[in-house]
Design a protein around this nucleic acid. Structure first.
Length: 365
DNA sequence: GTATGCTTTCGGC
DNA sequence: TTACGGCCGAAAGCATAC
């Protein structure tokens, strides 16, 4: 029994690259793909930018006006996001990638894990060739570059893919795993966020190597059995998570920027009722009901608040959703005295409702 | 002491 | 000088159960 061979394929600066492919004449300029909020000419944020723009200081999440300031001396291209189109392109590329894998797992719109243990007969010697073939195919059929990381599991493949991009290929053989991982900062591991990083720093754990040589029993005492064990294994590049197709999303949410900052409940509801209707339409389409309703608000000072409630009995009714959303915004307003800038709605705890459950069951039978 | 489940916040893309 | 989206899952924090 040989080990697994896993690739992580990550499309480079995806939205902006798709725009370059759609209109090659912009390729040699900074390209900035933006979400315009509609509040004023340039209000909104940068979704992603090509590497020419990045080199000039443009970053994801940055205000559009700031990106324009950084590019004021060059001929740059600013485009609105076209999610429907990116979704279509993504679906076609994912279908192509699926063909090159024994097992396949899409992660978000621009990433996928390909288990290629059988295709490569478990050999890291032949995987470079296969990875090059995947890159060439994506390039030939979709005129898009991607970066690929290869390792003996998902954890290592993910870290590998980040090492060289864009248009990169990084292969970490099983015997190289610890040498490559140990010098990296601990927060490169999934599961280590700001708080955990700080907690680890207090224990003098800064790199993955520090984590690996830390006593496993002590880790369990500090972080609990589950997390402690996970951190210990992850530091050694050990990960048994299978590569498998993901189910449907666990939550559906919509958020929108208000015309102006306000604390007026009816003005907020006017906007969020529409969001509820969109979410409800999605639920009908997918045949899901929800158990939890949540709202979120970005306040005048850009701080974020959220409230949520779960129901004993699940529902897929629009009125239930709207009523809960109203109640939650009342609560949020009563607990803060800032004006609201953006307002959002989320449903989670999703499950197929009975009707489509029966249809699904009879379909399987 | 650890697991579990819920709510809220964080962070990547 | 300032400037500020939308969506998702992960992380964190807390209460309660075991």
């Amino acid at each position: 029994m040989t080990g697994r061979v896993i690739m992580l394929v990550d499309f480079d600066y995806f939205f902006a690259q798709v725009e370059e492919t759609r209109n090659p004449s912009i390729r040699d300029k900074p390209v900035v793909v933006c979400v315009y909020s509609g509040r004023s000419e340039d209000s909104g944020a940068v979704s992603t930018a090509n590497y020419i723009a990045r080199k000039l200081g443009v970053k994801s999440g940055m205000p559009i006006a700031l990106a324009k300031a950084k590019l004021q001396n060059v001929e740059a291209v600013f485009l609105p996001v076209d999610n429907v189109f990116y979704e279509e392109v993504s679906e076609r590329i994912m279908a192509l990638l699926r063909n090159s894998a024994d097992n396949f797992e899409q992660v978000g719109i621009d990433e996928a894990y390909l288990e290629v243990s059988q295709k490569t007969k478990g050999s890291f010697e032949s995987v470079a060739e296969l990875a090059q073939k995947v890159k060439a195919e994506v390039k030939a059929k979709h005129n898009l570059t991607c970066s690929i990381g290869v390792g003996p599991n998902k954890l290592v493949a993910k870290i590998a893919a980040d090492i060289q991009k864009p248009d990169g290929l990084t292969i970490i053989k099983p015997e190289q795993v610890t040498v490559v991982l140990f010098p990296l900062p601990v927060d490169r591991l999934i599961g280590v966020g700001t708080k955990t990083k700080a907690k680890m720093q207090a224990l003098r754990i800064n790199t993955i190597g520090d984590l690996a040589k830390y006593d496993a029993q002590r880790l369990i005492e500090v972080f609990g059995k589950n997390l402690g064990l996970y951190f210990h294994n992850a530091s050694l590049g050990i990960d048994d998570e299978p590569v498998r197709e993901r189910g449907e999303a666990e939550s559906i949410s919509r958020i929108s920027t208000l015309k102006e900052d306000t604390r007026d409940l009816s003005a907020i509801l006017e906007k969020v009722d529409g969001l509820c209707e969109e979410i409800h339409a999605d639920l009908l389409r997918s045949g899901h009901s929800f158990r939890t309703v949540g709202i979120s608000a970005v306040m005048k000072d850009m701080s974020i608040r959220s409230r949520s409630r779960s129901f004993e009995n699940r529902s897929s009714k629009l009125e239930v959703l709207k009523e809960a959303v109203k109640e939650l915004f009342e609560k949020l307003l009563s607990e803060s005295d800032l004006e609201v800038r953006r307002a959002g709605v989320k449903v989670s705890g999703l499950a197929k409702d009975e009707k489509s459950q029966r249809q699904l069951t009879s379909f399987i039978e």
